[in-house]
Amino acid sequence: MNNFLLYTITIVLLLVSYFKDKKKTFQALKKAWRSFENILPEFLGVIMLVGILLSVLNPPVISKIIGKESGWFGVILAGIVGAITLIPGFVAFPTAAMLLQNGAGYMQIGAFVSALMMVGVVTMPVETRYFGKKLTLLRNILAFLFSFIVAYIIGKVVGGL
C-alpha cells in the first residue's frame, strides 16, 4: 500500500516534470543515478550485515535475553539488542508483541523498540559517509540514551496500570 503510493507519486511527478522540461528531467534522473551509485557500496554492505546479524539474533534468542530479566539490567540489554539489530517495523512490532506475551516488561520493550528505530549501529557506514564519524557517533549515542527515557516513561504510563 505504502510502496504503491510512493511509486504513484514518483511516476506522476516524473511525468509532470517530463512534459514541462525534458532536459531538466533527464538531468534529475542523472543526478538520482549518480547519488545512488555513490552510496551503493555502503548499502550493499549494510544489507549483508543485517542478514548475518538477524540470522544469529532471531526472536527466540532476543526473547531469551530480555524475556526473563526485569529491571534496568533487562532494559539496558533490550536497548543494546535494539541498537545493533535492524528489523523492519512490520516484523519488529509483532515480535515486540510476542515478547510482551512471553513475559517481557513494557519498559524493556519500550527500550527495544525505541533503540531499534533510532539507533543504527549497522547503518553507521552509510551515516558516516554523509555526516562524518563524530556526528554519527554522537547521534547514535544520544539516541541510545534517549531510548532509556522513552523506556522509563512507557514503563510508567503503560506498565504502571
Binding site: L6, I9, L13, Q27, A28, A32, W33, S35, F36
Partner: peptide, 13 residues
C-alpha cells in the same frame, strides 16, 4: 529507486 528519483526531481526543480 523512487526515493532517489524524487531526490533528483527535488534537486532540479
Amino acid at each position: 529507486p523512487p526515493v532517489f528519483v524524487l531526490l533528483g526531481l527535488l534537486d532540479v526543480w
